[in-house]
Nucleic acid binder design. Structure first.
Lengths: 132, 132
DNA sequence: TCTATATTTAGACATTGTCAAACATTTTTC
DNA sequence: GAAAAATGTTTGACAATGTCTAAATATAGA
């Protein structure tokens, strides 16, 4: 039985062909893509899908906590299939986004902030990725 | 002598009336506004200024390090007249952005990241601002 | 002043995102 | 089981953000 079908059904999402095409694509990659980049890729499997449906589906998956929308790039939201807490590194030359494991960094002091109830936090690092 | 005029001249920026209007406005507020919000406000002082000039001027001030462009809001860059290192808190209900002083938080571990040369970092906190 | 350079402008264009209406599906009623 | 109603899904058209160009305007230097 297709695991993505049950994943969607568990959250009360009807697995229409369009939604399946989007979900199968986005859960099959690790990169951080914009909605239009997802559209472009999904169209190769499902050429008639509309832009609005891709946007609707991605936002629905975010609402159902299967996906996370991240504000990391200028001008566009990117979608992250990693919904665990983690940080991000952005290569300033290429724009490429890399996940940094939660355990790699430690942030302290947010508990002492008066006037702010912190629900989540992340560190955004910028610099140059070093080719190994 | 007007301090903004000398500030611009020091960086080799000709202080035209349009640039002065943008600079006086943006350096006189603490909020984080988008280019179109700046346009709207500046037009009340200088009604004939064009959208392109506001975009050009803001980007020029960023290039000359008098302003920092921040990717904090979906869909638009915001401009921050605080160019010192600091963190940001975003109220998830209102979208309001608050500066968090650099000293309020401590981040450790970024020196040990293999494969990444970190040039700058900031913590992005999200939650609810508590009315005092 | 004349000339070269710098700046501003309106509008065209590209990209990202939203919305109301059209369309399809499921449920209810008989 | 068919028709009607309610619900859910998809779509094209539209709005907002940002960049670019070419023409007009302003400024600085000889």
């Amino acid at each position: 039985m297709n695991s993505i079908v049950s994943m969607l059904r568990e959250r009360g999402i009807q697995p229409t062909p369009q939604r399946m095409a989007v979900a199968e694509f986005i859960f099959g990659i690790k990169s951080h893509l914009s909605a239009d980049q997802v559209l472009e890729q999904v169209r190769s499997k499902c050429p008639t899908i509309s832009r609005a449906t891709v946007y609707n589906t991605l936002n629905l998956l975010v609402e159902k906590k299967l996906l996370k929308a991240q504000v990391l790039k200028e001008g566009t939201v990117v979608f992250d299939s990693n919904v665990q807490q983690h940080h991000h590194f952005i290569d300033e030359e290429t724009g490429e986004i890399y996940d940094i494991p939660w355990e790699a960094l430690r942030v302290t002091g947010e508990k002492s902030l008066r006037n702010f109830r912190v629900r989540e936090l992340q560190v955004i690092l910028r610099g140059k990725r070093i080719k190994k």
